[in-house]
Design a protein around this nucleic acid. Structure first.
Length: 632
RNA sequence: GGGUCCGUGGCCUAGCCUGGAUAUGGCGUCGGCCUCCGGAGCCGAAGGUCGGGGGUUCGAAUCCCCCCGGACCCGCCA
């Protein structure tokens, strides 16, 4: 029996009582109060006071009568003028909870929030550079969301969209073709070479030279046409970069089912087919006169009549499609509403054994995407308006219910602290922080950062574990580095800019990913030293436990509540923050309570609590993608 | 100019969606704790007009309106 089950039970009972009184517009909510106020708390009496013309206190008394036959209930108290505080029979509740956790391991809190297929697009970095720490925010979010969605009952298909037809790509292709950069570069990572050297170099030269701009335009045209030397060269380069980028993604624990190339989309004629559908929308019109004569425009503003000045052009007067147009069609395809099959081939086997399939025009196994219940697109906040337009367009075609399935899962940018920009990149910066810029070379690559973090942490590991062999130490250092970076990126609100400071990131104490791993390693260490395993059916001797034991236990038991909230809101942040809070609580427990030296009954109970802690942390690690280590 | 988002002790941050009982942690500052399971740790202290104003409410950091400050978006570009 989980706390969520007990909560549902209470909500059902109180809900039925409400309906009996003819009240339908008040939702029953439960809180987890401070420990002295019980295990669950019901503030509903306050909301009913006016409606029933009674004091909250009187209503609370009435509600107590409703709560009679709740399993695990010990007693109920009224406090604070109308709260109904619910106290469980903790010995029984915790014993059952512990048994469930130890028997079912990390599956103990699995739930079904309705299910269905979620198609999740994330990463989608242009294949002309290495991933920088801003991309890592996207990747970390996607990987975690994938795990969370699966745990709460969805099927998930992971898509990485590869835009190999844009100007960023053309910039480096021009660099290779005309500016002498080496397409066979092999001294270091090819993606870093393309981004750090070729792109920055080429871009600057192109912007200053009309002739080069013309050449870039020609390259873009050739890529779009396909079937020529330039287009296959471009695809070859992009593929080389992508393979390197994927290594970084894997390092961050991210994998994919489908790599979808923009060039394949173009060559397969998806846009033409998609536009034939979009054209039929009520909100799309052909403009026959004036400045915008010859354009197809979508009415997305609030204006009465369609007005190209404020509405969005989908097809230009020369017949080519704008970015909005293309992206809308891709959105329809991802939602399984287009039915346009693309050929796919096996591209690479990923670390978990999962195969990533790549689109590959013209030959491969034809795949038509099924309709999905949700299409989640992890894209930066700067695209909010554009994504809104896409949703409007979908609404115009299929109605509001379908449009609601298309979710722009946005996140704000990662900036660099001015200190980091000047100290490590030699860029003088005004103010507290600066926006990253690929063109200016103002960014930090994920691999560069992870290497730095790993090296920093490695010496501490050697000091603390002299018996550990080098390979093992290295693996641990890598995990600590990844955990620290992910914690940094996932623990703050998606709406907020993360200001990245390299020195702060390298400081892996206190509130950090490493702190979490440290408490876990301590727990593991105790279990290694314990001479016996406590059998799962042992349970606990609740009366012998002190406040620190009880606090930890109490907090462990709310795991399902946290997961439910995270799953319903599609947020990973609560999980990450909970993970940190739990670690904090464990460290406190650890400092205050001897385990191995405790009296036998207490020792057995504490070992059991630690085992539960381990399972919960393993589960949270799986859900958030923050890796753990057994020692460090 | 129009739109979206953010504003919580010196600095960073949780809580905001779904209003509820003393506002969460961290950094920094000051002071403690290793004969004891891992000190990458723990304990304590100082530090708060939850940007400002108004409204709704028995009750507002949380909901609504206005204002201020910051970020982002607003091309037949991608």
């Amino acid at each position: 029996m989980l706390l969520t089950d007990i909560g549902n039970n209470i909500k059902r009972k109180v809900g039925a009582w409400l309906r009996g009184k003819g009240i339908k517009d008040i939702e029953v909510t439960l809180e987890i109060p401070r420990p002295e106020f019980g295990d669950l708390s019901l503030p509903i009496a306050f909301k009913l006071a006016k409606k029933l013309r009674k004091s909250p206190n009187e209503i609370a008394k009435e509600i107590i009568g409703v709560l009679r036959d709740i399993p695990y209930l010990d007693h109920v108290e009224i406090a604070g003028g109308g709260y109904v505080n619910i106290y469980l029979n903790r010995e029984k509740f915790y014993s059952d909870f512990i048994r469930k956790v130890l028997e079912e391991d990390i599956d103990f809190a699995r739930m079904d929030l309705g299910g269905g297929l979620v198609r999740l697009e994330y990463t989608s970095v242009n294949p002309n550079k290495a991933l920088h720490i801003g991309h890592a925010r996207n990747v970390a979010l996607g990987a975690a969301l994938n795990s969370l969605l699966r745990y709460v009952g969805y099927d998930v298909e992971l898509i990485n969209y590869i835009d190999d037809t844009g100007t960023q790509m053309a910039d480096i292709i021009l660099g290779f073709l005309y500016l002498g950069y080496d397409a066979n570069y092999s001294e270091g990572r090819f993606d870093q070479y393309c981004g750090d050297v070729v792109y920055t170099g080429s871009h600057e030269k192109i912007e200053a030279d009309e002739e080069l701009k013309r050449k870039r335009k020609d390259i873009l045209k050739l890529i779009e046409e396909g079937g020529n030397v330039v287009s296959s060269f471009t695809r070859m380069i992009a593929e080389k970069v992508l393979r390197e980028q994927l290594k970084t993604c894997w390092r961050l624990g991210a994998e994919y089912d489908r790599l979808v190339w923009e060039s394949d989309i173009v060559w397969s004629g998806m846009h033409k087919k998609g536009f034939d559908i979009i054209k039929r929308s009520r909100i799309v019109k052909y403009i026959s006169s004036g400045k915008y004569a010859g354009c197809w425009v979508a009415k997305v503003s609030g204006s009465e009549e369609i007005n190209p000045e404020v509405d969005d052009v989908l097809v230009r007067s020369d017949g080519t499609m704008t970015y909005v147009g293309k992206d809308s069609i891709f959105a329809l395809w991802k939602m399984g509403l287009l039915g346009h099959p693309l050929p796919f081939i096996e591209f690479v086997t990923q670390p978990s054994g999962r195969i990533a399939y790549s689109s590959s025009w013209p030959k491969g196994d034809l795949v038509t995407l099924d309709e999905c219940t949700l299409s989640i697109n992890i894209i930066g906040i700067e695209q909010a308006k554009l994504q809104k337009i896409i949703q409007k367009l979908i609404e115009g075609l299929y109605g509001e219910d379908v449009a609601k399935k298309y979710i722009h899962y946005y996140y704000n940018h990662v900036w660099l602290s001015s200190k980091t920009a000047s100290k490590y990149l030699g860029m003088e910066a005004e103010g507290k922080a600066v926006k990253m810029s690929g063109r200016k070379g103002l960014y930090i690559n994920v691999d560069t950062l992870l290497d730095k973090m790993r090296d920093k942490v490695l010496s501490v590991i050697r000091d603390n574990n002299p018996d550990l062999d080098e390979g093992e130490a290295w693996k641990i250092a890598e995990r600590i580095a990844v955990a620290s970076l992910k914690y940094l990126l996932l623990s703050v609100d998606r709406d907020k800019i993360v200001v990245f400071d390299l020195d702060d990131a390298l400081d892996v104490t206190k509130e950090s990913g490493a702190y979490i791993l440290y408490s876990y390693a301590r727990a593991k260490s105790i279990l290694r030293k314990a001479e016996y395993d406590v059998p799962a059916e042992h349970g606990i001797s609740y009366d012998l436990l002190n406040d620190y034991d009880k606090m930890l236990l109490r907090y462990l038991a709310i795991t399902p509540v946290v997961i439910l909230e995270a799953g319903k809101s599609l947020e990973v942040k609560p999980l990450v923050n909970y993970m940190y809070r739990l670690s904090q609580m464990f460290n406190e427990f650890y400092e205050k309570n001897p385990v191995l030296k405790a009296e036998e009954e207490v020792k057995a109970s504490r070992l059991t609590i630690i085992r539960v802690y381990i399972v919960v942390m393993n589960l949270l690690s799986m859900l958030t993608g923050i890796p753990l280590v057994e020692r460090m």
